[in-house]
Computed example of a mutant assay.
Amino acid sequence: MPKNSAMSRLSEALVETADGMLRVGIMDEETHRRITARHIPESERAIEIPVPSGEDIRAMREKANLSQAVFARRLNLTPGYISQLERGVKKPSGPALVLLNLIRKRGIDAIS
């Protein structure tokens, strides 16, 4: 039997056991996530990154006491794009989305 097949069956059994333990309440969600994350194929992993609204983005910028131009420069974006995000014309994606979520969690100094 090839090693990959054995690991695949072992991983499936581990995930199934962890799922059962979570279901009956003897394992918390964080522990379940840590145990199963490495055993779930990468193609099945879902990463959910919350998308801040235009109002959220404006609030983050104002909390940092920055103009749109300075905020844009800190994020390596254009002031026009920041304006579009704040007005809700566009939704952030890619690296901009990741940076905005980092600012939301840790403040503007997190990207300095």
Rank of each mutant, 00 (worst) to 15 (best):
K3G: 10
K3V: 14
K3L: 15
K3A: 13
A6S: 02
M7Q: 06
M7R: 08
S8Y: 07
S8L: 11
R9F: 04
L10Y: 11
L10K: 13
L10N: 12
S11E: 05
S11R: 11
E12T: 12
A13R: 06
L14I: 13
L14V: 10
E16R: 00
T17L: 14
A18H: 08
A18C: 12
A18M: 09
D19W: 00
G20S: 03
R23E: 15
I26D: 11
M27H: 04
E30R: 00
T31R: 06
H32R: 15
R33Y: 12
R33A: 12
R33P: 00
I35L: 15
A37D: 10
R38M: 07
H39K: 05
P41F: 05
P41A: 03
P41C: 02
P41Q: 02
E42S: 09
S43E: 14
S43R: 09
E44C: 01
E44L: 13
E44F: 08
R45P: 01
R45G: 01
R45F: 04
A46I: 13
A46L: 11
I47L: 05
E48V: 14
E48M: 07
E48Q: 10
I49H: 03
I49D: 03
S53W: 04
S53D: 06
S53F: 02
G54E: 04
E55N: 02
E55V: 03
D56C: 01
I57T: 04
R58A: 11
A59T: 13
M60K: 07
E62P: 02
K63Q: 04
A64F: 00
L66A: 04
S67I: 08
Q68L: 06
Q68C: 01
Q68A: 09
A69S: 12
A69P: 01
V70W: 03
F71V: 09
F71P: 05
A72T: 11
R73C: 06
R73S: 14
R73D: 14
R74M: 15
L75N: 01
N76K: 14
L77I: 03
T78V: 04
T78P: 07
G80N: 12
Y81S: 05
I82V: 15
Q84N: 14
Q84H: 12
Q84T: 10
L85W: 07
L85G: 11
G88V: 03
G88K: 04
G88S: 04
G88D: 04
G88I: 03
K90Q: 13
K90D: 11
K90M: 06
K91S: 13
K91C: 01
P92Y: 12
P92G: 13
S93L: 09
S93E: 14
G94C: 09
G94H: 10
G94I: 09
P95V: 08
A96T: 15
A96D: 08
V98I: 15
L99K: 15
L100Q: 08
L100I: 05
N101T: 07
L102V: 15
I103W: 01
K105T: 02
K105G: 04
K105H: 07
R106D: 05
R106P: 01
G107Y: 00
D109S: 14
D109A: 15
I111H: 08
I111P: 08
S112I: 12
S112M: 09
